[in-house]
């Protein structure tokens, strides 16, 4: 029997959150954490969490499992359970709506701030804009972000300044457009980032790299942004 401890909070009933201990019979199988949650919910329908694709591409079920952020659907028990114990908490640093569901508004707002869409002021050709495989390769490791917020909510700088520091996820996306040879708004984009908070609150702690379920490296992207700012500065 796996000992599962889940963070519970229903604002309509609970004055404060608490941890609920539940025993789960996994049948000795190396299930994913999401499977365990589904088993629990089939018995107690009040347990609340987000989930969608269950294969690690939609980014719904970012959770804190035994102290580490990750996606419940692609985290096998063998990877996270220690001493037969699994502690599941919501992503840290964001307001909790109910149980494992956090209010991601601040996270999305930071994403929107970097204007995450291609800007090109030249008229579009009749076919696609050409881009060499080498230039396209610059987007690898950037465009794959699934906005699960595992990185930003593992980042102390984001915990303290979620309104002002864009956070690893948003900055990864900022660089995705800075790196795109089809984008012509580089100067404007950089001008938006050159303040003491947006980019420079990153202290290179690298929690983001450590937890990213897609194996991406926001710290490196932030370094690239800094270098771009530096090389353009006078």
């Amino acid at each position: 029997m796996l000992q599962v401890s889940i963070y519970r909070y229903n604002p309509e009933q609970d004055s404060q959150p608490y941890m609920q201990d539940i025993q789960v019979d996994t049948g000795g199988k190396d299930l994913m954490v999401l499977d365990v949650l589904e088993m629990i919910k089939s018995q107690d329908t009040t347990v609340t969490y987000r989930r969608s694709c269950r294969e690690g591409v939609c980014g719904s079920d970012g959770l804190n499992m035994n102290g580490k952020n990750g996606l419940a659907c692609i985290t096998p028990l063998s990877e996270t359970v220690k001493n037969n114990k699994l502690v599941i908490r919501p992503l840290p640093g964001l307001p909790v709506i109910r149980d494992l569901i956090v209010d991601m508004t601040m996270f999305y707002t930071q994403y929107e701030k970097v204007q995450p869409y291609l800007q090109n002021d030249t008229p579009a050709p009749a076919i696609e804009r050409l881009q060499s495989p080498e230039d396209r390769a610059k987007l690898d490791g950037l465009y794959e972000c699934i906005l699960c917020a595992c990185c930003s909510t593992a980042c102390p700088s984001f915990w303290w300044n979620p309104e002002r520091f864009i956070g690893p996820s948003g900055l990864l996306q900022a660089y995705r457009f800075l790196a795109d040879t089809r984008d012509t708004a580089t100067t404007e984009r950089l001008a938006q980032l050159d303040d003491p908070f947006s980019v420079f609150r990153c202290h290179g702690i690298q929690n983001c790299v450590n937890v990213c379920p897609k194996g991406l490296n926001p710290t490196r992207a932030i370094g690239h942004i800094r270098n771009m700012l530096l090389s353009r500065a006078t």
């Binding site: 303040d195 003491p196 908070f197 947006s198 980019v199 420079f200 800094r226």
Partner: peptide, 10 residues
């Protein structure tokens, strides 16, 4: 902040 710009501070 010291230099007003994140880059210059950094």
């Amino acid at each position: 902040s010291f230099g007003r710009s994140g880059l210059s501070d950094w």
